[in-house]
Write a protein that binds this DNA or RNA. Sequence first.
DNA 1: TAGATTGTTAATCGATTAACAATC
DNA 2: TAGATTGTTAATCGATTAACAATC
Lengths: 215, 215
Amino acid sequence: MASKKKVSIAVIRRLPRYYRYLSDLLLVDITRISSKELSTRMGITASQIRQDLNCFGGFGQQGYGYNVESLYKEIGNILGVTSRFKTVIIGAGNMGQALAHYGNFERRGFEIIGVFDINPELVGKKVNKIEILHMDLIDEFIKSNKVDIAILTVPYEQTPGLAEKMAGLGIKGLWNFSPMDLKLPHKMVIENVHLSDSLMVLGYRIKERYDEKPD
Amino acid sequence: MASKKKVSIAVIRRLPRYYRYLSDLLLVDITRISSKELSTRMGITASQIRQDLNCFGGFGQQGYGYNVESLYKEIGNILGVTSRFKTVIIGAGNMGQALAHYGNFERRGFEIIGVFDINPELVGKKVNKIEILHMDLIDEFIKSNKVDIAILTVPYEQTPGLAEKMAGLGIKGLWNFSPMDLKLPHKMVIENVHLSDSLMVLGYRIKERYDEKPD
DNA sequence: TAGATTGTTAATCGATTAACAATC
DNA sequence: TAGATTGTTAATCGATTAACAATC
């Protein structure tokens, strides 16, 4: 089979959403669903659902629809929830600790195996059963544990330098919480979480919706 | 002037990004910039920049480009950084506290005036100089302070009910951190932050980039 | 079988990019 | 002025939606 056409990022970003809805259906013991019914629940078109899914394979059956459990598993596999991504959190401030406590990540294939900080008051403390280690130890830790992903929750100024360092240590992916676009000339994948961008968009939309003066 | 055509959400979501890049330029004392130069820095086309900006007005000048400071201010105004959105955080767990400590929001026009939780061990503690109040007080607080925005950092199960409650209390916007799509039949604006969705996309992209077997 | 619903091709829509006259 | 660069229209591209034959 020839190499498949690359799936667009728009489709990829919808996959976790499908995954969530299917999970909800499983919880209420719904075993099958048509693209039409799912489209009503999700507020998108049935056409889009079928198009999206068919980027990865024909998971449905004519006249029947989709089996919820098997589709859930298929999408899980595509997203890699069965993977064991070894993950470290760099920066054990409020955000780093919040993420360390968020148990959902483990179930999604991300294993938090280390938390690091430079603050001596934090080093030695435990978050979610993991002892916070000093940043001095990180090179050795990443190499010996073959860490895949680093979650960066450090101050703005330290972010670019650390990102470079991570690339050098062979980290495959970075989850960046600083309000900057990390774009490095490396193979490393970067996913930016721009919280204040999101909040500003909320502000804009509120103004737009509530200030509609007749002008 | 007739009412302008609604600006697409894709454009809106790029505005905070422009705002960040212009802020960076100001910091290094660059006073003017052409769409071409900015496009190189941001990794998008100059055409797109000019199209985006012209949704809101002609901020540039032929032969010159854009004045960085005035464009920064214009975009700030569009986004509402000069607004004073009164904001409460509901749920003072790790994530709620992390957000309460994140000073950037204040500078973007969002004033955190209250933090709430049901946990008696948290009530009375202070986060970022704000005393955590019991949820029993929230109705009265929102009404008397005319709160605009609620940041929801509560457990999954409590989220839909609270969202309904907020709508009833006249909250204009919700910043939701639970992994569910809040869609309510209200005027209220909802901005979802789906952290685990983002992480799963990171996982997918890593697999895609590093597993490229020749098949 | 008849009805339902998929997988997939074709049509539409909207967003991005290119081009260029206007103008500083 | 001549050169540079915008604002804006037109062309292109890609994503979404519609349609329908295939088939369970």
